[in-house]
């Protein structure tokens, strides 16, 4: 039987001139989801940045499987963090952490 809530792991890259802290990235993404889809959408998407998988400008965001596309849109909606302009580029969406470990290392 399929679980009603399945996790998806979005591997993304930050394109910017300067380095941006992981906490700020997570806050900015959550803020964008909240702005576009509301509190209810944010609670359903349940985005979490997995800090142990962050490497350089590449990061991993864990979300609900129903909110993958909406989260991607919200990530594209982030224009700047701390007045530093940036582009968030999605690389790939994974279904398990095992696969993502192989890609990042």
């Amino acid at each position: 039987m399929k679980k009603p809530y399945r996790k998806r792991y979005i591997l993304f890259e930050i394109i910017s001139d300067s380095k941006i802290k992981e906490e700020l990235i997570e806050i900015a993404i959550k803020k964008a989801i909240k702005e576009l889809f509301g509190e209810f959408g944010l609670s359903e998407a349940n985005p979490k940045l997995l800090k142990e998988f962050s490497k350089g400008k590449k990061h991993v965001l864990c979300v609900d499987h129903r909110y993958v596309q909406k989260t991607k849109l919200a990530m594209a909606y982030v224009k700047e963090i701390n007045k530093k302009k940036l582009i968030i580029k999605t690389i790939k969406v994974y279904g398990t952490l095992k696969k993502i470990k192989g890609v990042i290392k």
Partner: peptide
Amino acid sequence: KWELRGTSELIAFGEV
């Protein structure tokens, strides 16, 4: 150049 978006983001935009 900072307003450019990737292919997968634009596809997600279309899907939404």
